[in-house]
Amino acid sequence: MKNVLITGGAGFIGSNLALKLIFKGYSVTVLDNLSPQIHGDNPEETSPLFLSIKDKVNFIRGSVTNIADWTTALKDQDAIIHLAAETGTGQSMYEIQKYVEVNINGTALMLDLLVNSLHTVKKVIVASSRSIYGEGKYVSEELGVVYPTHRYAESMDRADFEVKYPGSSTLTLVATDEESKIHPSSVYGITKQNQEQMVLTVCPSIGVAGVAFRYQNVYGPGQSLKNPYTGILSIFSTQIKNGNNINIFEDGLESRDFVYIDDVVEATILGLESDTANNQVFNVGTGVATNVLAVANGLVKNYGINVEINISGNYRLGDIRHNYADLTKIKNLLGFTPKISFEEGLKEFTKWVNTQEIQVDNYQKSIDEMKSKGLYK
C-alpha cells in the first residue's frame, strides 16, 4: 500500500502523520476543509498545520460531507486514514446536528462509496476516542469490576465530584481495556462510537480491512493554539501566554491519559502496515493517569510565567472524572509501547509553544456558550 488518503490530514494528528508517511515513501492525499476554529481565518496563508504539509501532499480542500469531494479523494487510494471529525465533548452537547453531520454522516458517505462503487482501497483506519468509554473502569470492594454512569449535578453542586456506584462503598480506578463497557457521556463520544462500529461492521463485509484506534488525549508540538474548545494543554498555554489566570474545573484531581503525538503517529502507522491489526480495535495512550492540576502546574513551571491557578469547583455536564488506557492488546498484537513520558512531552510542547505567536485567548467565549445552554455550572 503506497497511496494513502488522510481525511482531516491538515489537522494536528493528520499533518504529523502525513509528514511521517511521506518520509517513509508513501504518496499522501489530504482531504481537509481547513476549519477556521482550528486553522484561523486565512488558513492557506497562516495556518502552521497546513503550511507544514503544503506542496508535500496532494491537497484537496473539501468536506467529508460532500460526496463529490470523497469521489475525487478516493481515486487510486490503497488505504484511508479517517481522522476528519468535529472534536470536543463540551461543544458537542450544543452543536449536535453539526457533530452528527460531520462525524456520522461523513463516515457513512465514505462507506457508501466503498460499498457501491469501484475503488482500490484495501484498508480503512478510523480515529475513535477514549470518549466512547464514558467513565473509566473501576473495581468495587463489594461487586468487583463496575462501570459507573455519568455523574449528577446534585452531587457536583456539593463539590462531590467522585463517581459512585449503587451498592458499592469504595471504588478503585483501573485501566480501561478494549473489552470495557462502552457508554459515552457526550454527543461527541456517541458519534465516535458510531464511526468505529460502522467501519468495523461494513469494511470486513466487502473485503476491506477495518482498524479503529481509540486515541486518548493527544498533545504535542503543532497542536492548534487557536481552538478554545478542545485540548487543555493548548487552552491553558494560550491563557498563560496571555498572562491570564487558569480556571480549573471541579477539584483539579480529574485525570486523563495524555499521549504524545509521535507515539500516536507510530501506533497509527503500525496499524496501517500490519495485517495483525486488521478488523481490530486498539487503545492508544500511555497507560498513565495524570490529573489536570498537575498539567496546569507543569505548564506554569515550564513557561516561567506567574499566573494564578484557581480551582473553581465549576464543572461541565458530560465530562467524565477519570479514564486511562490499558495497552496490553496493542503491545501484544502490534508491539507498540509509548516512548515519551508526560514530563518529556510537556517540555517539548512548551518549547514549541514558546516559538509560536501568542494567540487571542477565546476560552471565555466557549465557557459563555456552554453557560448559556445550561451545560456549565
Rank of each mutant, 00 (worst) to 15 (best):
A159C: 13
P166W: 06
I261C: 05
R151W: 09
S180F: 02
V199M: 03
V265S: 00
P228H: 07
Q223R: 14
L225T: 09
E254C: 04
D177L: 07
A212M: 09
Y188G: 04
I240E: 10
V163G: 00
G220V: 10
D262R: 14
Y219W: 08
N242R: 09
T149V: 08
G252Y: 00
G220A: 09
I246W: 07
A267G: 09
D157C: 10
A175L: 09
G167M: 11
S168N: 09
E196F: 02
D251P: 06
Y138I: 12
Q193V: 06
I246A: 06
E178N: 06
I232V: 14
E162A: 14
Y138W: 15
V163F: 03
V146Y: 03
G243R: 06
Q195L: 10
E254T: 12
S155K: 15
I246T: 03
Q216K: 05
L253K: 15
E141Y: 04
I235P: 01
H150C: 00
V163T: 12
V264Q: 03
N247R: 14
T170W: 07
T170P: 00
Y219N: 06
F249P: 04
V211M: 08
G144N: 07
K226D: 06
L225D: 13
K241V: 03
E178M: 10
L272P: 01
T201D: 15
E266F: 03
D157M: 14
N217Q: 10
L200C: 04
A175F: 05
Y147L: 01
L173W: 02
S205H: 08
V211F: 08
E254M: 14
R256E: 10
Q195C: 11
E154C: 01
S140E: 06
E178R: 02
G222A: 10
T170A: 05
L143R: 08
N245V: 02
I235F: 08
D257Q: 02
S186L: 02
T238V: 15
S155W: 13
I261Q: 07
V259E: 06
N242A: 07
T170R: 14
T149E: 13
V202Q: 03
Q193L: 15
P166Y: 05
N242P: 06
M198P: 05
A212L: 11
E196W: 01
D157H: 01
I235C: 04
E179T: 13
K164S: 15
Y138L: 12
A159K: 15
V174F: 05
F258K: 04
Q193S: 13
A267P: 05
E162K: 15
P166G: 02
H183K: 13
V199C: 00
T230G: 00
Y165K: 04
G243W: 08
G144W: 10
G231F: 12
Q216G: 00
P148K: 00
E178P: 03
T230Y: 13
Q193M: 14
S234W: 11
S169Y: 04
I248N: 01
K181D: 10
A212H: 14
G207L: 12
A153E: 15
L253E: 14
V174W: 01
Q239C: 08
P221C: 11
L270Y: 04
K241Y: 05
N247E: 14
V218D: 05
M198N: 06
L233N: 12
Y152F: 14
L270V: 01
S237M: 08
G167W: 10
K137M: 09
K226L: 15
T191K: 03
E196H: 02
D160V: 07
G252P: 05
S237V: 09
S169K: 15
G271S: 10
D257S: 03
D160N: 11
V208K: 00
G222Q: 07
